[in-house]
Amino acid sequence: MSLPDDVAATTSQYLDLIDKALPGRVVGLYLTGSIPLDDYRPGRSDIDGVVVLAEPLKDLDPAREVHAQLPQEPAFDVTYLTAAELASPPDASKPVVFTLDGAFNEARNGGPVSPVLWSELARQSLAVRSTPDLVVHDDHQALVDFTRANLTSYWTPTIDQLDTATANRPDDAAMPDWALPWVVLGVPRLHALLATGNIVSKTAAGEHALEAFPEWTSLITRCLRHRAGHPMDFTAVDAKAAVLYGRKIITNALAL
């Protein structure tokens, strides 16, 4: 699979810079998310991935300086982990170094560490630099449990916030063009995982939703067109429909 031009340029620049800053320390670079799922959209998608380290980073400044030199778009969002960490179940209680929206971060715990990242890496990642004999722990039941918890801990309050934000707005009030596709294509990714066992892209999730929830075909189709790069306008009446849609999918998913 060939990389999109902007992804190839950014990953090549990153490896050149990091190898000079930390010689021999980065032994792998694997892309996750939209790129290996063939759903990368220039101008909309980030570059997600995992950097495999020979040993944990002690001095963060060299890596921080490397990321500061990378293009702001597409955002280069990676998590720094050792092969030993990846061979074990994800431990969200440990400190983790990662980038989010291109910004360098160190969290005392949590961050992007989850069964989703481990399973993505194990099942459907794309190696830019391969780590010899890499073994990634992939626990499907842990992935299912995390997905169920995410439906209630993240998506339920997110949809509640959307409901509150739009309840008293006129139906024709404009909505940010990214907000509804985030919900309409995001929630069914979790439903698809629980229904099929597979991690799917946002586009594939929308296609899954068209089959599973055809009563919202118009809204889903418009969000898919937005995902594909077509200009789309969304209003508060669409947001109110998305609230009902999201709650229906969550209820259905939790019953699977």
Rank of each mutant, 00 (worst) to 15 (best):
F213E: 04
W178C: 01
A107H: 07
D233T: 15
H191M: 05
P62V: 07
A75P: 07
P56Q: 10
K58C: 12
L117E: 06
L53I: 02
L53S: 04
L190R: 03
N105L: 13
P214C: 10
V7Y: 00
K20P: 00
L134P: 09
P42Q: 09
R129V: 15
A173W: 11
A241Q: 15
R108C: 10
E65S: 14
N150A: 05
T11M: 06
H137N: 13
S119G: 06
P42V: 04
R189I: 10
H140L: 03
P36Y: 06
L3F: 11
L126C: 03
A212C: 06
P176M: 09
P112I: 10
T99H: 07
V66W: 02
R64N: 12
A165N: 12
V243A: 06
L224W: 03
T79V: 15
D160F: 03
G28D: 14
A75M: 04
H191I: 00
N150G: 08
G28V: 13
I47C: 09
N198L: 05
I47W: 08
N105S: 13
V7F: 02
T82Y: 08
D38L: 08
A228D: 15
T196M: 02
D101S: 12
R169G: 06
H208F: 14
A75V: 11
A92C: 01
L219V: 01
A236S: 14
V144W: 00
D171V: 09
L254S: 13
R222W: 01
V187P: 00
A83S: 15
A179F: 12
P231C: 14
